[in-house]
């Protein structure tokens, strides 16, 4: 089977006289390098110039908050189970009275850590999450000097209310429509006293 159209049969024939002069070969090689002088540069000047990224690029994770700013994660641990690299650990705690604006569910993650050195950015955590809580974003994980600094806690993972992250590109239209259906727990909104069911469409 031929794997490439550029393969050549190797032969051990003696050098011909013109080959042993080397000069034709040298001139040929030099003209090839010279022609590259006028070719387009392949370099992307990275920090100044960014390549377009796919909307579903799998970079650093974010723990989403809902519309009023409560954390969506309920510390169910499904992401950690799904994770093939065992990069996620968490510790759960019970929501106190009066914390409904901070945590959407009665149980929340007190500690939530992802080890970015273990993570292979497969996105399975995102897929496993029943609460629309964890998403991968197009942010590239920063470099650090110490290994410990790669263990990202909630301080780095939870979305800031001042800098919300749009993840709608990661969801197909069907999914977004489905998520709007009433009766789905994660569509309930907290209005200060109690949770309201999402509106019917």
């Amino acid at each position: 089977m031929k794997l490439t159209s550029r393969s050549k049969v190797v032969s051990n024939k003696e050098q011909s006289f013109s080959e042993s002069l080397y000069l034709p070969g040298i001139i040929k090689g030099m003209s090839i390098t010279l022609s590259h002088l006028f070719k387009r540069r392949a370099t992307v000047k990275y920090p100044d110039e960014l390549r377009p990224m796919a909307g579903v690029y799998r970079g650093q994770h974010v723990l989403k908050r809902d519309d009023i700013g409560a954390e969506r994660c309920t510390a169910c641990g499904l992401c950690a189970v799904a994770c093939p690299a065992e990069a996620i650990t968490m510790e759960s705690a019970e929501r106190k009275k009066g914390e409904e604006g901070m945590y959407r569910e009665e149980k929340y993650a007190r500690i939530y850590e992802i080890n970015m050195l273990r993570c292979i950015f497969c996105g399975l955590c995102e897929e496993a999450c029943p609460k629309e809580a964890i998403f991968l974003t197009d942010k590239i994980v920063d470099t650090e000097y110490e290994r410990e600094d790669f263990i990202y806690g909630k301080d780095k993972l939870v979305e800031k209310m001042t800098a919300r992250i749009d993840v709608t590109k990661r969801q197909t239209k069907e999914v977004i429509e489905f998520k709007k259906l009433p009766g789905l727990k994660h569509n309930e909104l907290f209005d200060g006293k109690s949770l309201n069911k999402g509106k019917k469409h």
């Binding site: 590259h36 002088l37 070719k39 387009r40 540069r41 392949a42 370099t43």
Partner: peptide, 10 residues
């Protein structure tokens, strides 16, 4: 770097 389609030190 020009011969190798790169930019070089800049």
């Amino acid at each position: 770097s020009f011969l190798q389609d790169r930019v070089g030190p800049d």
